[in-house]
């Protein structure tokens, strides 16, 4: 992936790749973080940092193949929001405590804020943007509208992604079970009782979830 803001000259993707290929001696340095720090202090910082900070990442997001270069410290959440502009996935705490960032990775619900983007290499990620089939909403999305399972809407993508897996996991057999298995997703507006109704409705609706 290209730098969004190629503002500083040393920081362009092409030169970085060339630099990386040609410079095996410096590549060895990558194994020695202290050296990197020292090099950085001597002013080589930007080039070296750029060279070693990025890793290739091939990942499928919402059925689209991406070939990216990302820093290992970038979370899946920040990759989605800040680099790919898939902003349907929300940041609520950045600590895996609120569930607003819930996405599906290979069919499992995960907190994307606790998932380093590079760990999704070769995996399939589905976000809220990839849930509907074109204009046709997913049954859980439809149920959230019907039962007013939200207010401000900020936790909603995470709630819906979580609810879809909750049903698929077989954890939506009765309202109390839904309450338990949806308790990783905080809704501060307090739409829970409507969310439970929406999930139960979607589950009972008999449509493919």
């Amino acid at each position: 992936m290209k730098e969004k803001n190629p503002g500083t000259e040393e920081n362009k993707g092409s030169s970085r790749r060339t630099f990386f290929k040609q410079s095996s001696a410096i590549a060895a340095l990558a194994l020695t973080p202290v050296s990197i720090v020292k090099a950085s202090e001597k002013g080589l910082d930007e080039k070296i940092a750029s060279a070693f900070e990025k890793m290739p990442l091939r990942v499928e997001i919402n059925s689209k193949a991406y070939s990216l270069e990302v820093e290992p410290r970038v979370t899946l959440l920040d990759l989605l929001r800040e680099q790919l502009h898939l902003t349907g996935t929300k940041k609520g705490c950045d600590h895996g405590q609120c569930g607003a960032c819930t996405v599906h990775v290979d069919g499992r619900r995960v907190n994307s804020c606790l998932t380093l983007a590079v760990t999704t290499e070769g995996k399939k990620v589905i976000t809220i943007e990839g849930l509907a089939k074109g204009e046709e909403l997913h049954p859980v999305q439809q149920a959230f509208i019907q039962f007013d399972g939200f207010q401000c809407g900020y936790c909603t993508p995470g709630q819906i992604m979580s609810a879809v897996c909750c049903i698929r996991e077989g954890h939506a057999n009765d309202p109390d079970q839904v309450r338990e298995f949806m308790s990783g997703n905080i809704c501060r507006c307090g739409a829970y009782s409507n969310i439970v109704d929406a999930v139960m409705h979607a589950k009972k609706g008999g449509q493919q979830i």
Partner: peptide, 19 residues
């Protein structure tokens, strides 16, 4: 009436300030 911005909110299309 269903929430008029419901569709935007359930599809992730509603844009909040940081987006």
């Amino acid at each position: 009436l269903d929430r008029v911005d419901g569709r935007l909110k359930v599809t992730g299309a509603a844009r909040y300030f940081a987006e």
